[in-house]
């Protein structure tokens, strides 16, 4: 009886989208969020969140690289010689990121100019590397794809939230459209030309340290709402 049970378990599990698979996507959105819990992928979260458009492009790029590298690594996981494991993973990631950069240069030049150095830094985005090591090396391509998707989206959500506050409070715009205020405080004797002229942009929001403050508050809110995360890191 025990023998047949073991034999049955060794048969390939079919591809399905059940509770376990859904958890792969939803966990990184909340309990296991790459930025607020796992402390990964911080660098780009700070630099590209000055505008929602840039944050969105970066989020899409990271989801692409995450899913892509997870799938490729998982498919090759038995063939990669363990001695060169790290280098192979890095080459896979670097190739995907180069593809992203070439695509942006050809089809979205403005975003390419705005993101510049930080596209390349997706390679060192700890989320991508972290998920490769922690998941893709030991799981099938289908699950790895879902995991990459979940983590990429979890990262993207945080990016968009931070960018929302920074752009709105820092420039009075969202996605480049002016919403509130026109008082650019850095030019003296300005003529305000917009309808809502009462808001003076908080210039500090556009600088790097403010991203830190916004994320600090986000973490505070996240952990206050989800108490099991207190003291986790």
């Amino acid at each position: 009886m025990a023998e047949t049970q073991v034999l049955v378990k060794k048969v390939a599990t079919p591809i399905s989208f059940g509770k376990k698979e859904r958890a792969l996507i939803t966990d990184p959105l909340n309990d296991n969020n790459p930025i607020t819990v796992q402390v990964l992928g911080i660098c780009s979260a700070l630099a590209v969140t000055t505008g929602m458009k840039n944050a969105a492009v970066m989020a899409v790029a990271v989801v692409f690289v995450c899913v892509g590298s997870n799938v490729i690594t998982s498919a090759l996981r038995k063939a990669i010689p363990s001695q060169v494991r790290m280098i192979v993973q890095l080459v896979i990631i670097a190739t995907l990121v180069t593809v992203v950069e070439l695509t942006l240069k050809a089809y979205a030049f403005e975003s390419y100019k705005q993101l510049s150095v930080f596209i390349g830094l997706i390679i060192t985005n700890c989320i991508v590397m972290g998920r490769l090591e922690a998941f893709a090396m030991a799981n099938r391509p289908y699950e790895s794809a879902l995991d990459g998707l979940g983590n990429g989206i979890g990262y993207g959500i945080i990016l968009l939230i931070v960018a929302f506050f920074r752009e709105l409070l820092g420039k009075g715009e969202l996605f480049g459209m002016k919403l509130i205020g026109a008082g650019d405080i850095y030019a003296i004797n300005t003529e305000t030309s917009d309808i809502f002229g009462w808001y003076v942009s908080n210039g500090l929001m556009v600088q790097f340290p403010s991203a830190m403050f916004v994320i600090a508050v986000l973490i505070w809110a996240h952990r206050a709402w989800n108490p099991k995360l207190v003291d986790i890191s």
């Binding site: 650019d184 850095y186 210039g203 500090l204 556009v206 600088q207």
Partner: peptide
């Protein structure tokens, strides 16, 4: 951004 970059953005 917000300071010198205003020569382009503002």
């Amino acid at each position: 951004p917000g300071l010198g970059a205003e020569i382009k953005d503002n």
